[in-house]
Design a binder for these strands. Structure first.
Length: 486
RNA sequence: GGCGCGGUACCCAAGUGGUAAGGGAGAGGUCUGCAAAACCUUUAUGCGUCGGUUCGAUUCCGACCCGCGCCUCCA
């Protein structure tokens, strides 16, 4: 079974496959770097990451382009306010974004491209549109796209713009435009704000043109998939289609994927509602990046996800269950051989996980398949029915799972520590709690085991308490002591 | 108003025309020096409400109620 994905353009779930070379050419709208990324941004980026990881697991090659929008009205305004260049202003947020991607185990797209480095190409693109009659220049030197020339306008967002004709009398509030719906391709310079010189005059690019130009430059006139948050469907993506298809006469992107917004504590996230969280806010508050990633993946991308602190706790426990199981499998000493029941449990999990992902990236179903296996293996292990040869297949299932979900590796502590250091540098928090090094942990565990052996339980419990105070949780098993960071 | 999505146990959530996955939480139990982990049992005759189609509907159709999103360069 191949992957089936919902396509906003057709409004249906369709089989998805790259059109050439087994390489998926995809473009995802990236961040506008005017601030730190928030949890809503990251739901979209995590969903795209899940897609790309699953495509690769399915044997496809990837050519994934993501833009960094480092020029827009807000950036230009803020940069002017702070008396900085646009580049100075955006660079720190761009770096922060890349760091945040790392925290959430988001893979780097094959290409990350900055809008400001493609301005000449944008100007040329606009000039070509003007030549074909799809764009016009207004008196102040701005350029607009003439929607009336593109009858398919609205096909992505399913909006009806019928009856809009060139010169038709509409309620125009911006008198310079031919039609109120015409959108800006290029904006003439404003007093005191940054602008670029170009072949079509001075100014700055509109938002939509950036994505058309960069996607086509690196992926060709037509490519396989374009993704973004649901709010981008209209007008952003609709406008990209109009610009690109007007120019080339070819299909722009064959497939459109839109990720639904998340809610925070049941409400739309907004600064005024007090439920606005950047990724950094959460890390500094002590939430693990793996919990955040797991919560973000736990609800399929087309469903609204209610992001709550309780949900974060639950996600943390779910991840812990999987990690504990993996550790148990690795440590357990078992008799040689295999158990057919265990072999089948692993095979089934593998099948079901794949089936779930192929069904429009049903991450909830896929992870349920893994949890099913975990329970069955644990039961067999408890009953002494697991064999040495059963470990590898179950660990392989976890590896396949983690190629996509990427939450198994316990590197949360390091990432959180980095976030705390950042927060401290920015005066957002006081001193971080002391952490115990791995070496120290192992030394204390040895000391405790010696105490246990001597049946000095008071001493051993004191040592465990000491470790617990440092956030280290111990588990004694017959094959030795396991530990993890809380 | 236009377009669209959703309402499943205490919470999150999958799913199907034939009788409710998974995770978390709660309760009881097993194991263990204690703990942790793990396992077992248990928690929806019920899937927003009311009708209809059907041998049979949570799943299809209709109406209604509730929540939410986009339509404002907010992912």
């Amino acid at each position: 079974m191949p992957l089936h994905l919902y396509n906003t353009l057709s409004g249906k779930v369709e089989e998805f496959a790259p059109s050439q070379d087994n390489t998926v050419r995809m473009y995802a709208c990236g961040p506008t770097v005017y601030d730190y990324g928030h949890i809503g941004n990251f739901r979209t980026f995590v969903a795209v990451d899940i897609l790309r990881r699953f495509l690769r697991q399915s044997g496809h090659k990837l050519q994934h382009v993501m833009n960094i929008t480092d020029v827009d009205d807000k950036i230009i305004r803020n940069a002017a306010r702070d008396k900085k260049t646009v580049q100075e202003y955006t660079r720190k947020y761009e770096e922060a974004f890349l760091e945040d991607m790392g925290s959430l185990n988001l893979e780097r797209p094959e290409r990350l491209v900055r809008a400001t480095e493609h301005i000449p190409a944008m100007a040329e693109f606009i000039a070509a549109l003007e030549k074909k009659g799809f764009a016009y220049r207004t008196e102040d030197g701005s350029y607009y796209f003439r929607i009336a020339m593109f009858p398919e306008y609205g096909k992505l967002s399913k909006k009806d713009f019928g009856g809009m004709e060139t010169g038709a009398r509409v309620d125009v509030d911006e008198y310079e435009k031919d039609n109120a719906r015409d959108f800006a391709l290029w904006k003439s310079p404003k007093e005191g704000e940054a602008f670029w010189e170009s072949s079509i005059g001075p100014g700055r690019p509109g938002w939509h043109i950036e994505c058309s130009v960069m996607s086509m430059k690196y992926l060709g006139d037509s490519f396989d998939l374009h993704a973004g948050g649901e709010d981008l469907t209209f007008p952003h993506h609709e406008n990209e289609i109009a610009q690109s298809e007007a120019l080339t006469g070819k299909i722009f992107s064959r497939h459109w994927m839109h990720v639904r917004f998340l809610l925070v504590e049941g409400e739309k996230m907004s600064k005024s509602a007090g439920n606005f969280f950047t990724l950094r806010d959460l890390l500094v508050k002590g939430h693990k990046p793996s919990s955040i990633r797991f919560l973000l993946t736990s609800v399929p991308y087309r469903k609204q996800l209610n992001f709550t602190m309780a949900g974060l706790e639950q996600a943390a426990k779910s991840v812990e269950r999987l990690r504990t199981f993996a550790a148990r499998m690795r440590m357990m000493r078992l008799p040689a051989g295999t158990n057919p029941a265990a072999q089948e449990a692993a095979a089934k999990a593998r099948r079901e996980m794949r089936a779930g992902m192929e069904d429009d990236l049903n991450t909830a179903y896929a992870s349920a398949a893994v949890f099913d296996m975990v329970r069955e293996m644990n039961t067999l292990a408890d009953h002494g029915e697991l064999r040495e040869g059963d470990k590898a297949p179950s660990l392989e299932v976890l590896e396949l799972f983690d190629e996509i979900f990427a939450v198994m590796k316990d590197d949360d502590a390091d990432k959180m520590k980095a976030a705390m250091e950042w927060a401290r540098e920015h005066g957002l928090v006081g001193e971080a709690a002391k952490t115990i090094s791995d070496e120290e942990v192992n030394r204390l565990i040895e000391e405790r085991n010696a105490a246990k052996k001597a049946r000095d339980f008071a001493r051993s419990d004191a040592l465990r308490k000491q470790l617990a105070d440092g956030g280290i949780v111990l588990e004694d098993t017959k094959d030795g002591t396991r530990w993890k960071r809380k």
